[in-house]
Computed example of a mutant assay.
Amino acid sequence: MLVRPRLDGYKQGVDRFFNQQEVIRVDVIINFNDEVKVKLTEVGIEIMQEQRRELNSHIQGNGGIGLGELELKTDDDGYTRFQLWDLMNRFGQHMRIGHPEPFEGTMIFPQLNLNEWVSTAQDVD
């Protein structure tokens, strides 16, 4: 069955989508250059600060002045934006079972337009 959800507003649409009684399997195409929003944990912030220190040290070791301290930009809800490839590059090696997570498990893909989703729905018994 082909499903094309018509959603009026993002929040209303997401609420309706996830509160349905039936389970819908959705294939979503995401590009590595698409943006993703995550809430960094203290571990994630420390990882980014250490990466900035290493970069500054490298720049200064080559005669530059460095970039200064990390200035983390978050939105009003505490989310930080990354391109997907950058998020994977920065935190991939830190994502291991039994280790503290650098960011909370929920990701938001702000560029996804739910009105354009084409998904295949299958009844789950």
Results as ranks from 00 to 15, higher is better:
Arg16Ala: 01
Thr120Arg: 03
Pro100Glu: 02
Arg6Phe: 12
Asp34Trp: 01
Leu70Asp: 12
Gly44Glu: 05
Glu50Lys: 14
Lys11Trp: 14
Gly92Tyr: 06
Glu46Thr: 00
Glu116His: 12
Ser57Cys: 10
His99Trp: 15
Glu22Phe: 01
Gln111Lys: 11
Glu54Leu: 02
Asp34Asn: 05
Gln60Lys: 02
Arg90Ile: 07
Leu84Ser: 06
Gly9Ser: 15
Arg4Met: 09
Ile45Arg: 14
Trp85Cys: 04
Phe103Val: 00
Val118Asp: 03
Arg16Leu: 09
Ile45Pro: 10
Asp125Ala: 05
Leu40Arg: 00
Ile65Asn: 14
Pro110Asn: 03
Gln49Asn: 14
Val23Ile: 14
Lys73Gln: 12
Leu72Gly: 00
Gln21Asp: 13
Asn113Val: 02
Thr41Ser: 00
Asn56His: 04
Leu72Arg: 04
Lys73Phe: 09
Val43Glu: 08
Gln60Asp: 03
Asp8Asn: 11
Leu84Ala: 07
Asn115Ala: 10
Phe17Thr: 07
Phe109Met: 07
Ile24Asp: 13
Ile97Trp: 11
Asp34Lys: 05
Arg25Ser: 05
Glu71His: 15
Trp117Asp: 07
Glu54Gly: 01
Gly98Asn: 09
Ile108Pro: 07
Leu7Trp: 06
Asp125Ser: 08
Asn56Cys: 11
Gly9Leu: 15
Val26Arg: 04
Phe103Gly: 00
Gln20Pro: 01
Glu116Asp: 12
Gly78Ile: 04
Arg53Asn: 07
Arg52Met: 10
Asn33Gln: 06
Ile24Pro: 10
Gly64Arg: 03
Leu2Arg: 03
Gln21Gly: 10
Pro5Val: 10
Asp77Phe: 04
Phe32Met: 08
Glu35Lys: 00
Met1Tyr: 05
Tyr79Ser: 14
Asp125Cys: 08
Lys11Ala: 13
Phe32Trp: 13
Met107Pro: 01
Val36Cys: 03
Ile29Arg: 13
Arg96Gln: 11
Thr80Val: 15
Gln51Pro: 02
Leu70Ser: 15
Lys37Cys: 09
Met88Gln: 05
Glu42Leu: 06
Gly13Phe: 03
Ile59His: 12
Trp85Asn: 12
His99Gln: 13
Asn113Gln: 00
Glu50Ser: 15
Ile59Asp: 12
Gly66Asp: 08
Gln111Gly: 14
Ile108Ser: 09
Glu46Leu: 03
Asp76Glu: 14
Val3Trp: 15
Met95Ile: 09
Ile97Tyr: 15
Asn56Pro: 05
Glu35Leu: 06
